[in-house]
Amino acid sequence: MSKVTNTKIVEDIVVIATEGYLNKDLGEEIQNIAQKYIDDGSSIFLINLKDSKIVNSIGASILIELIEQLQDIDGQLVFCDLAPIIEKTFKIMGLTKYCKVYPTEDEAVKELA
Protein backbone atom coordinates (compact mmCIF):
# COMPACT_ATOMS: atom_id res chain seq x y z
CA MET A 1 0.00 0.00 0.00
CA SER A 2 2.82 2.41 0.83
CA LYS A 3 6.54 2.14 0.13
CA VAL A 4 9.74 3.86 -0.89
CA THR A 5 9.70 3.67 -4.68
CA ASN A 6 13.14 5.04 -5.51
CA THR A 7 16.35 6.13 -3.85
CA LYS A 8 19.14 7.88 -5.74
CA ILE A 9 22.01 10.27 -5.17
CA VAL A 10 21.95 13.52 -7.15
CA GLU A 11 24.75 16.06 -6.55
CA ASP A 12 25.51 14.48 -3.14
CA ILE A 13 21.83 14.74 -2.17
CA VAL A 14 20.07 11.51 -1.24
CA VAL A 15 16.65 11.65 -2.91
CA ILE A 16 14.05 9.29 -1.46
CA ALA A 17 10.74 9.02 -3.33
CA THR A 18 7.67 7.45 -1.76
CA GLU A 19 4.25 6.19 -2.73
CA GLY A 20 1.08 5.92 -0.63
CA TYR A 21 0.15 6.57 2.98
CA LEU A 22 2.98 8.07 5.05
CA ASN A 23 2.24 6.04 8.18
CA LYS A 24 4.46 4.36 10.75
CA ASP A 25 5.63 1.65 8.33
CA LEU A 26 6.61 4.07 5.57
CA GLY A 27 8.20 6.44 8.09
CA GLU A 28 10.34 3.58 9.39
CA GLU A 29 11.26 2.50 5.86
CA ILE A 30 12.45 6.04 5.08
CA GLN A 31 14.35 6.13 8.38
CA ASN A 32 16.05 2.79 7.71
CA ILE A 33 17.10 3.77 4.19
CA ALA A 34 18.36 7.15 5.41
CA GLN A 35 20.36 5.42 8.14
CA LYS A 36 22.29 3.36 5.59
CA TYR A 37 23.23 6.50 3.65
CA ILE A 38 24.15 8.36 6.86
CA ASP A 39 26.43 5.45 7.76
CA ASP A 40 28.06 5.85 4.33
CA GLY A 41 28.66 9.57 4.94
CA SER A 42 25.64 11.28 3.37
CA SER A 43 24.09 14.22 5.21
CA ILE A 44 21.63 15.94 2.85
CA PHE A 45 18.32 14.20 2.27
CA LEU A 46 15.43 15.17 0.00
CA ILE A 47 12.16 13.32 0.46
CA ASN A 48 9.92 13.49 -2.59
CA LEU A 49 6.32 12.95 -1.47
CA LYS A 50 4.75 13.52 -4.88
CA ASP A 51 2.97 10.17 -4.78
CA SER A 52 2.08 10.25 -1.09
CA LYS A 53 -1.12 12.23 -0.69
CA ILE A 54 -1.87 11.47 2.93
CA VAL A 55 0.09 11.26 6.16
CA ASN A 56 -0.49 10.51 9.82
CA SER A 57 1.23 12.04 12.82
CA ILE A 58 3.04 8.79 13.62
CA GLY A 59 4.76 8.77 10.23
CA ALA A 60 5.58 12.47 10.60
CA SER A 61 6.96 11.87 14.11
CA ILE A 62 9.48 9.40 12.71
CA LEU A 63 10.69 12.17 10.40
CA ILE A 64 11.29 14.31 13.52
CA GLU A 65 13.69 11.60 14.69
CA LEU A 66 15.48 11.84 11.34
CA ILE A 67 15.70 15.66 11.63
CA GLU A 68 17.23 15.21 15.07
CA GLN A 69 19.73 12.66 13.80
CA LEU A 70 20.76 14.89 10.89
CA GLN A 71 21.23 17.88 13.20
CA ASP A 72 23.86 15.86 15.05
CA ILE A 73 25.94 15.56 11.87
CA ASP A 74 25.20 19.08 10.54
CA GLY A 75 22.99 17.51 7.93
CA GLN A 76 19.75 18.64 6.36
CA LEU A 77 16.35 17.19 5.57
CA VAL A 78 14.12 18.84 2.96
CA PHE A 79 10.88 17.91 1.23
CA CYS A 80 9.39 18.45 -2.20
CA ASP A 81 6.10 17.96 -4.03
CA LEU A 82 3.94 18.04 -0.92
CA ALA A 83 0.17 17.71 -1.17
CA PRO A 84 -1.45 20.80 0.43
CA ILE A 85 -2.73 18.85 3.44
CA ILE A 86 0.69 17.29 4.08
CA GLU A 87 2.37 20.70 3.90
CA LYS A 88 -0.25 22.10 6.28
CA THR A 89 0.22 19.19 8.68
CA PHE A 90 4.01 19.60 8.66
CA LYS A 91 3.53 23.34 9.27
CA ILE A 92 1.18 22.78 12.24
CA MET A 93 3.62 20.27 13.73
CA GLY A 94 6.54 22.64 13.19
CA LEU A 95 8.54 20.42 10.83
CA THR A 96 8.79 23.30 8.36
CA LYS A 97 10.78 25.29 10.94
CA TYR A 98 13.54 22.73 10.48
CA CYS A 99 13.00 21.53 6.89
CA LYS A 100 12.61 23.57 3.73
CA VAL A 101 9.83 22.63 1.37
CA TYR A 102 10.33 22.91 -2.39
CA PRO A 103 7.67 22.77 -5.08
CA THR A 104 9.59 20.23 -7.17
CA GLU A 105 12.56 17.88 -6.97
CA ASP A 106 14.41 19.85 -9.67
CA GLU A 107 14.08 23.10 -7.72
CA ALA A 108 15.28 21.44 -4.53
CA VAL A 109 18.32 19.88 -6.19
CA LYS A 110 19.17 23.14 -7.98
CA GLU A 111 19.21 25.08 -4.71
CA LEU A 112 20.92 22.44 -2.59
CA ALA A 113 23.62 21.42 -5.06
Binding site: S57, I58, S61, I64, E65, I67, E68, M93, G94, L95
Partner: peptide, 14 residues
Protein backbone atom coordinates in the same frame (compact mmCIF):
# COMPACT_ATOMS: atom_id res chain seq x y z
CA UNK B 1 8.49 20.61 18.26
CA UNK B 2 11.17 22.59 20.10
CA UNK B 3 10.51 20.41 23.14
CA UNK B 4 10.77 17.24 21.11
CA UNK B 5 13.97 17.78 19.13
CA UNK B 6 17.18 16.87 20.93
CA UNK B 7 15.31 15.95 24.08
CA UNK B 8 14.09 12.70 25.55
CA UNK B 9 10.46 13.73 25.09
CA UNK B 10 8.57 11.25 22.93
CA UNK B 11 8.16 12.44 19.37
CA UNK B 12 4.50 11.42 19.16
CA UNK B 13 1.43 13.01 20.75
CA UNK B 14 0.27 15.35 17.97
Amino acid sequence: IENKINTNERKRGW
